[in-house]
């Protein structure tokens, strides 16, 4: 423990704030993507990006706090991401068969 490892070095050089900031930027980009795109594939990708930024955030907290809980939590985020993507893509394929487009606004029979 008394040796200065490369990890500790790096952690000292890059403060936690920078990780947090990176995650927030990624999250916001994902958010923008969800709002911006009407191609469903892109919307799904953006959602994935948001989940990923959360993963990164959890891991960096976990490492800086020296607590494995955060990393265990990331597993569950991955589980959910995988399940959600599977359902979403299946739904996408089904809808594509019905309407032959992936435009998010193709389905607007129902008004707000």
């Amino acid at each position: 423990m008394n040796d200065i490892t490369p990890l500790q070095d790096q952690l000292r050089l890059v403060p936690l704030e920078h990780y947090v900031f990176l995650c927030l930027v990624l999250f916001s980009i994902g958010l923008t993507g969800v709002l911006l795109r009407r191609n469903l594939i892109n919307v799904f990708l953006s959602l994935e990006l948001m989940l990923n930024s959360v993963n990164l955030l959890a891991v960096s907290f976990s490492v800086y706090y020296n607590d494995p809980n955060g990393q265990a939590f990331v597993f569950f985020v991955m589980v959910v991401a995988a399940a959600e993507v599977a359902v979403g893509l299946a739904m996408l394929v089904m809808i594509y068969r019905n309407v032959h487009t992936v435009d998010i606004n193709a389905l607007n029979d129902l008004k707000w």
Partner: peptide, 8 residues
């Protein structure tokens, strides 16, 4: 982050 357990 001085005391970091590398094994976690």
């Amino acid at each position: 982050p001085a005391i970091v357990d590398q094994n976690i």
